[in-house]
């Protein structure tokens, strides 16, 4: 799905989290929102997912105005920073949650739910863990379960907030490839937030560098490396 951000601004009381920013994200792209903490990247992601509403500006999905669309209607697969798995449910129930939450007429039958969850567990390469609880999983496994749960609703886009933030270096590398593969098989427009420039440069087709609630530069990783547009970008990618 093609996403357009048109002059979106957001303030929380007296503090401005986002100055008006505009950005076009082509369908099927893997995009990184890169910036230090407080740069407004997570706020922008949450606005796209419908978890916050902008103070001004519009969000367009495939050219249609989606600014006031509710979070449920958006069908954005969202992976949270700490994964936010439902701790009292098994992995199976976590992944099935979105399917069971559907209105009765579009809810798949139990056998179909089981088939889909099993398929997703195979996709994240953890077919054995359906009966476990989140507290019994490693950090890397939790992240993949969160990804499977987001994919279960057949989302129109995938939004990830610091998906590798809480993992150690080796697992992080492994899961980067995992995300790339899942993106390539599903073809979903995927946007992830990160403060790690290596991660953004290695994984993304398009990198959006942000600072202080503004977009500093948008470009392919190699272009940003070769021609940083502002002193901030130069300093940030060299750090």
């Amino acid at each position: 799905m093609h996403i357009e951000i048109d002059e979106i601004a957001k303030s929380f009381g007296a503090t401005t989290a986002l100055h008006p920013v505009s950005l076009a994200i082509p369908s099927g792209a893997l995009v990184a929102l890169l910036g230090p903490s407080g740069s407004g990247k997570t706020t922008l992601l949450r606005i796209l997912g419908g978890l916050e509403f902008p103070s001004s500006g519009r969000v367009l999905y495939d050219g249609q105005d989606a600014t006031g669309m509710s979070v449920q209607e958006r069908r954005a697969g969202f992976v949270f920073q700490s994964y936010a798995l439902f701790r009292h449910m098994t992995v199976f129930e976590n992944i099935a949650y979105g399917l069971r939450a559907r209105p009765r007429r579009s809810r798949p039958p139990e056998a179909e739910i089981e088939r889909r969850v099993t398929k997703l567990l195979e996709l994240i390469q953890l077919p054995q863990i359906a009966k476990r609880f989140p507290s019994q999983l490693s950090g890397g496994q939790r992240q993949r379960v969160a990804l499977a749960r987001a994919l279960a609703i057949e989302p129109r886009m995938l939004l990830l907030d610091e998906p590798f933030g809480a993992l150690d270096a080796r697992v992080r590398k492994e899961l980067r490839h995992g995300l790339r593969e899942i993106h390539d098989t599903t073809g979903l427009t995927t946007i992830f937030v990160t403060h790690d420039q290596d991660e953004a440069m290695e994984l993304a087709d398009l990198v959006v560098v942000m600072s202080m609630g503004k977009i500093e530069q948008v470009g392919r990783p190699q272009d940003i490396r070769a021609r940083p547009a502002t002193p901030f970008v130069r300093e940030f990618i060299e750090a």
């Binding site: 997912g49 419908g50 978890l51 979070v71 449920q72 958006r74 069908r75 954005a76 697969g77 969202f78 949270f80 920073q81 700490s82 936010a84 798995l85 439902f86 701790r87 949650y97 979105g98 939450a101 559907r102 749960r149 987001a150 279960a152 609703i153």
Partner: peptide, 10 residues
């Protein structure tokens, strides 16, 4: 965040 996750799942 768990409530937010449930909302994004519909």
């Amino acid at each position: 965040s768990e409530e937010e996750a449930a909302l994004t799942l519909g």
